[in-house]
Amino acid sequence: MKNFKVSRIITHDTTFHADEVFAVALLKICGFHEVPVIRTRRKEILEDALLDPTAFVIDVGGSYNPGMLNFDHHQDTSLPSAAGLIWKMMNYCFHDDLIPHFDAFFAAIDAVDTNRDNIYELLHTLPEGFRNASSIISGFNRDVTDPQEQKEQFNDAVNVAMMILQNEHHSAIEHVRSEKEYADREILPNGVAVFKTFNTIWKKKDDHTFAVMPHANGWQIQSRDTALAVVPENVSECEGFIFRHGSGFMATVKDFEVAVEFARSILTEDPELPFNY
């Protein structure tokens, strides 16, 4: 179904949620930007749309039938949210290397929308000011008795969701690139990793306490976790020293050779390596 005609996208009115907002945003990103979006629960409109193979019916209508572009999940608790259903159909729009990243992203939207694995209990344990993609999108709701205002807010929410998906696309590309370059890293005798390009995943690997990589102002020495170790203060004595963050999580110097030489001098806590505290 990579090439098919779509005449309209229908979802429910009043309060909107992240699942139908991200579903609509994904369809727009995948080429249906100009297709009109209708928000309604009017029975006659839904009945007609459910029988129209050119009309997406999302998060409403009581039917899950991809062949007819019907994507409601409320009638079957085993289904993911509307966002997950649309993602399952439209993931061909993304390169295969990026699909695992978006699988995880949409699984998170599904979990919040359907309270999968009792996620609400987990969310209640987080700081009061914590926000996730679902709560940010829900925050666009206003007066549900004012259809025009809600329509405008829904459109704003979809535009923000599109930007979030674009950011996720960038993150996914960077993750794939960083994974490939991680394998080519240089490892100094004391265990410090050296990257010739900025790497976004090295901290998640838990293989190194420190790393060296390029920065806009030169070369940066980073700590994986300041609870484990900080970049020593004497980095300020290096030639071409630029900045050390007060927390010690990173410092920047101008030249690559200077950054690497300083990194070689950092002691490690790994008993298998040559240097110890």
Rank of each mutant, 00 (worst) to 15 (best):
Q75H: 14
M250S: 13
K88V: 13
P232S: 05
R8T: 14
P232Y: 02
I137L: 06
F243A: 04
R185E: 11
I136P: 13
T114L: 05
V6T: 14
C238Y: 00
F71N: 13
V235C: 10
H101S: 13
D117P: 10
D206L: 11
A157S: 03
Q150E: 12
D143V: 01
F32H: 09
K204R: 08
E174I: 01
A18Q: 06
K196Y: 12
T14N: 14
I58E: 08
A263Q: 01
I38S: 14
E44F: 04
E47I: 04
R264D: 09
W87A: 15
R264N: 13
E128C: 05
E272D: 14
E121M: 01
P232E: 09
V60S: 09
P189E: 11
V6A: 13
V230S: 09
E186G: 10
K151C: 07
T40P: 15
D72H: 04
I164G: 08
T125A: 05
R42N: 15
A211K: 00
C238E: 13
A157K: 01
F32P: 14
I58K: 03
N234T: 09
Y182L: 07
A183R: 06
F106K: 05
V260A: 07
N155F: 05
D103F: 02
D76V: 06
A49L: 02
H33R: 06
K28R: 07
H17A: 06
I136S: 04
V24E: 12
N141L: 02
S7I: 06
H215M: 06
F243G: 04
T145S: 11
T11H: 08
V253I: 05
A104E: 12
S134M: 01
T197S: 12
S223D: 04
I266W: 12
R142A: 11
N190D: 10
T268C: 11
I164S: 06
G246Y: 00
C30Q: 07
A104T: 13
I119S: 09
V260T: 09
D206A: 10
T11P: 15
C93E: 08
T40F: 01
F32D: 09
D48L: 05
S134D: 07
D117T: 08
H73R: 05
T125M: 06
E239F: 07
L26N: 11
D146Y: 00
E149F: 00
S78I: 02
N276L: 07
H124L: 13
V260G: 13
Q75P: 15
E272K: 01
N3G: 14
I136H: 03
